[in-house]
Design a protein around this nucleic acid. Structure first.
Length: 215
DNA sequence: CTTATGATTAGA
DNA sequence: CTAATCATAAGA
């Protein structure tokens, strides 16, 4: 079987990856507090070179989950088999299964050993739309293909098989965007149980972008 | 072993 | 507003 397409620079003249920027290859970029990484990820590219082909999308919505003090973070209740990746080095994928239906994709952050992560909540698919629609259903409008964390993982073909994958060397990776996003901050979704942490503005969205999740 | 529930979604 | 649907974590 053939190897996954290279993450190295696109061939000269290639235009299929519209505006796809430089891959993030510096682990220090990930090794920062999750709010900073979450804000920076809005407007950047998510790429998955999966079994069915490549899917690329512009990230338009993220949420930061901080260390043990953040009562909404999985790491707040200590290290378990599920969240172990959060306690490992930054720049890896933390994928978990929830509600018996959906997968959620997170980018593990730092600094250092701090168990922080960023949940990727929505993206605008720019390449591999046919593949994404095949996975999500033909009736889904393009604007909703990756709107919402469960829909995003479905569209990109991400599941627990990729949990722990290195975002610097694996089939799932990130690249800089060419168009800076105007980012707004709002409270996170679905964490009402987290007391004062539920009110903090740790959800980051691209302003006026139709590809964000509902609510 | 049993049991409660969730960083969700679609639909009424 | 609720059902769907099951891996996970916590407790007995």
């Amino acid at each position: 079987m053939s190897a996954a397409p290279s993450r190295d620079g696109a061939p000269a003249g290639a235009s299929e990856s519209l505006e796809l920027g430089a891959p993030i290859t510096d682990r220090a970029w990930f090794d920062r507090p999750s709010p900073a990484v979450a804000r920076d990820l809005v407007g950047m590219w998510l790429v998955h070179d999966g079994a069915g082909g490549r899917v690329v999308g512009r990230i338009v919505e993220t949420e930061a989950y901080q260390g043990p003090e953040d009562l909404a973070a999985h790491s707040a209740r200590g290290r378990t088999e599920r969240n172990a990746v959060m306690f490992g080095p930054a720049g890896h994928a933390y994928v978990y299964f929830v509600y018996g239906l959906h997968h959620c994709l997170n980018v593990v952050c730092g600094p250092g050993a701090k168990p922080e992560a960023v949940l990727l909540r929505a993206a605008a698919i720019t390449e591999g739309q046919a593949l994404a629609r095949q996975r999500r259903g033909t009736a889904v409008p393009p604007v909703r293909l990756a709107a919402g964390p469960g829909n995003l993982t479905a569209a990109f073909g991400v599941d627990r098989a990729i949990n722990g994958s290195d975002l610097i060397s694996g089939p799932l990776w990130l690249a800089t965007g060419s168009v800076p996003a105007i980012v707004i901050a709002r409270p996170r979704v679905g964490v009402d149980y987290a007391g004062t942490w539920a009110r903090r503005r740790l959800r980051f969205l691209a302003a006026d972008d139709p590809h964000v999740s509902r609510r």
